[in-house]
Amino acid sequence: MNASPALNHTQDFIIAVMAQDRPGIVAAVTQAVFELGGNVTELSQTVMRGYFTLILCACLPAKLSPIEIQARIETAEPEMALSVCVSPYNPHPLFVPEEAAGVYFLTVQGQDRPGLIAQITSHLASRAINIEDLYTKTEEEKITMIFQIHPQSPRSAECLTLDLEALACELGIDLHLLHQDILRATSEVGAIRRLVRRTQGRN
């Protein structure tokens, strides 16, 4: 992550914030970062059942410690009761998939029960498949999960494909794997060659 030209001796930090949702949380957090002399470079937030969570990357003066940043954000608006976690950004990823390993969407549909997510994700972990995004929704004890996954290698994707039927039987649920290209083709506007090339380039 590059430092802003205005900032000398800076470092990137990853900051996670959780709180009960209300207007003004993003404003409070980003204002605190700004007052610390920082700049937010990436941010993603979501709200679930009235709880807000956010993860952002900010470029801040290197002299600041994670504890100082945490304290400043948590005390920015005490009534918001922000729960903050700060880590220095490590530019060396722990998971580096092979270039040819595509991105897939694993859909799970069936009867919800305790431990189901743990069983599926353990299986994915044992196949060196990283979960990049996960959506779950439960309606009347029926659960739908959509995992955006990135296998370590084409081989681990092949293994998952071969395992899928047995795993679905074992867990008593419907499991299906869709390659990202298919979803991009059916859901996005643009020339297929360009969409697929972009996908492959990103992989």
Partner: peptide, 13 residues
């Protein structure tokens, strides 16, 4: 990617 789009594509197959 929208969940509805993913599930609609899945249904097709």
């Amino acid at each position: 990617m929208r969940t509805e789009d993913i599930l609609a594509t899945l249904r097709m197959f």
